[in-house]
C-alpha cells in the first residue's frame, strides 16, 4: 500500500499567498482569528461546504493556496454577512470570500462547470454592454452555457413569470453606455492590480 502524506510540512505552505490574504480588503484582522467557529455555526450554507468558513479562514491565512482557491466553499457563500455579524474579532469574513472568488477567477482555479463563476463573469459582461442586468436573459444565457437540461427545467418558472407579467422581453439599457465604459476602463482590472502589487513588493 503506497503511503500518503496526511499532514503538511511547514515548508509546503505558500507564504506569498498568506501575505496576500493579509493585504486584501477584509483581511486586516485575519491573524486575530481565534478559531472559535461562530462563523461556521451561523453560516446557513456550511453544511454543504468542503471546508467550513472557520477552516477556510485558517487555511487561507496559513497559505494553503490550492485548497482554498479550488474549494466549493467560496462559491457557496451567498454573502448574507451572518459570519461577519457574529465574529467576536470583527473579521470581515464575507469580504475575504469575495477576494478569494476574484483570485480564483483570475487564476482560473475554480471548480470546472460550476455555474457561479460563469454567472459572475457573464453578469459583469452584460453590465458593461447594457449598463443594466436583463435578469431573464442572464439566466437563460447561463443555463445554455453550463447545462441546457437545467434550462428545460426552468421553463415552468419562465411560464409563471410570463403569466404574472414579470418577464422582460427587451433588455433594459442606459443612455450613458460609453460613459460607463470610460469609467470602468479607467480602473485597472484585477490582474493589472496584482502585477502592480508584485512590482511594488519587489
Amino acid at each position: 500500500m503506497p503511503l500518503q502524506q496526511t499532514m503538511r510540512y511547514e515548508s509546503e505552505r505558500d507564504r506569498a499567498f498568506a501575505d496576500w490574504v493579509e493585504s486584501i480588503t477584509g483581511g486586516e484582522n485575519v491573524k486575530g482569528c481565534i478559531q472559535c467557529g461562530l462563523c461556521s455555526a451561523t453560516c446557513p450554507l456550511s453544511i454543504y461546504m468542503d471546508y467550513t468558513p472557520r477552516r477556510l479562514v485558517n487555511l487561507a491565512r496559513a497559505g494553503f493556496k490550492d485548497e482554498v482557491l479550488s474549494s466549493f466553499t467560496i462559491w457557496l457563500c451567498a454573502s448574507c454577512y451572518a459570519c461577519r455579524a457574529e465574529c467576536p474579532k470583527q473579521i470581515k469574513v464575507t469580504d475575504i470570500m469575495y477576494a478569494l472568488k476574484r483570485r480564483a477567477i483570475r487564476e482560473g482555479s475554480y471548480p470546472r462547470r460550476f455555474p457561479i463563476p460563469i454567472l459572475a463573469k457573464e453578469f459583469s459582461r452584460m453590465i458593461r454592454g447594457f449598463g443594466r442586468t436583463p435578469e431573464t436573459f442572464l439566466v437563460a444565457d447561463l443555463f445554455l452555457r453550463t447545462n441546457w437540461l437545467r434550462f428545460l427545467d426552468m421553463i415552468g418558472l419562465g411560464l409563471n413569470l410570463l403569466r404574472t407579467g414579470r418577464m422582460s422581453f427587451v433588455p433594459e439599457s442606459i443612455q450613458g453606455r460609453d460613459q460607463l465604459r470610460r469609467i470602468l476602463d479607467s480602473v485597472d482590472g484585477e490582474s493589472a492590480k496584482e502585477e502592480r502589487a508584485v512590482k511594488e513588493a519587489a
Binding site: 469575495y98 459572475a120 459583469s124 442606459i174 450613458g176 480602473v187 482590472g189 484585477e190 492590480k193
Partner: peptide, 22 residues
C-alpha cells in the same frame, strides 16, 4: 437619471475597484 445596475454580489466577485466605480 440614467442609473445603472448596482453590480449586486456578482460584480464584486469579479472586480473590486471597478465594482465600486460602477
Amino acid at each position: 437619471p440614467d442609473w445603472n445596475c448596482c453590480g449586486a454580489t456578482a460584480y464584486m466577485s469579479v472586480e473590486e475597484t471597478r465594482a465600486h466605480a460602477l
